[in-house]
Design a protein around this nucleic acid. Sequence first.
RNA 1: GGAGAAAUACCCAAGCGGUUGAAGGGACCGGUCUUGAAAACCGGGAGGUCGGAAACGGCGCGGGGGUUCGAAUCCCUCUUUCUCCGCCA
Length: 427
Amino acid sequence: MLDIKFVRENVDKVKENIKKKFQDEKLPLVDEVVEIDKKIRDLKLKGDNLRQERNSKSNEIGLLMRNKKIEDANKLKEDVKKINDILIDIEKEETILQEQIKEKMIIIPQMIDESVPIGKDDSENVEIEKFGKPVVPDYEIPYHADICENLNGLDKDSAGRTSGNGFYYLIGDIARLHEAMISYARDFMIDKGFTYCIPPFMIRSDVVTGVMSFKEMENMMYKIENEDLYLIGTSEHSMIGRFKNQIIKEEDLPIAMTSYSPCFRKEVGAHGLEERGLYRVHQFEKQEMIVLCKEEDAMDWYNKMWSYTVEFFRNLDVPVRTLECCSGDLADLKVKSCDVEAWSPRQQKYFEVGSCSTLGDAQARRLSIRMKTEQGNKLVATLNNTVVASPRGLIAVIENNYQEDGSILIPKVLQPYMGGKEKIEKK
RNA sequence: GGAGAAAUACCCAAGCGGUUGAAGGGACCGGUCUUGAAAACCGGGAGGUCGGAAACGGCGCGGGGGUUCGAAUCCCUCUUUCUCCGCCA
């Protein structure tokens, strides 16, 4: 969501930004918004003047009553009643216009960063850099679910019976490896200076609508029956929601936190669940990082944040690359975003394991997250990035450390979290 | 889950239908005194948000709604906190 003042003063820039995102159908919205905004301001001025008159007349009535001039007071009461009748209409119209403008403002995309590559859709995303050599061993790497099942580490059949498609039982050393990754990710981020946090796993609807669009909400969020509560799709939701309507002291910024949570997603309308595997599932766990900072520091943080994920995966001996989201593929709330992708030696291509975004002040405007400065309050910038989500991250580790004999070498950094174990093999 | 009480500005807190369109403290800022500080004394200010170039004005006493000429004050509702009971890792 943009600042209405910015739109008012930068109609051309806003339109150009929409074109860059190939959303030409939204172009008329800009003029409509400016027009409604003008109407609202006129109406507000009218209303304010009437309210001022009402206030002073009500005051007069008070004085007259005290002096027992009942008749004069009653006369004034009539006047104020008339003012109130006019005000009712004005207020009604204002409410309608406010809703109209909000509806439109909410779908006008955030101004993207100049550096974002222009492109229509995800096919035009741009590879930025490769880290580590993508190795293809001379033996065949089986499908990750088969590797896990062969090591007695996965039971999808039972999960199908208990919970349906999109769920899984992780068992034994595979479950432990999953947990080890999350734990290592936590400690890795703490070492980078981030504060560890376990947030609520359910949030209210007003927080949900603050952090995502309605369409996303429909397609992602599980609702608790008979309660105003939703299961979080990522801890970003509760972590950013934490600051809703808050004014942060300037000296308390930046706020850099790393949070753990299970994540629940309906995955409606996405590419569908993967029948056999663990790549796209209804439930996973994630170590996340979020940053709240001054707008001018956002780009530095953005670059730091994605590089932490790269470093994390390199420590696990997983080759990765960064892929920048082009303008057309960038979600409307985002200023700039890139995916970190891990190498799959089986598919011989990279697949998404994390996503790093800066939202500028868009989220802060929706949630009213501000910082106190000497010149008044300013919106903060919000950023988020995946450290690791598992089991998806698990797939990367398993495939890249798979041995010809069917065993998996445990990356050195994870061994302390696995009781010193160096290898997972069939018993 | 049941029963009660409460929510006022950075903090404490008065107020319970009209000179409160928020008293009084504390902290804070400015000053006097002091070599400097502390103490004391004097002075200052509603933080936020919206409209406006500004002057100024609107909103605003946990959120939302209502009654009234007029609401911090009365009514409804939601949220949160506290106390007691019940239940439970």
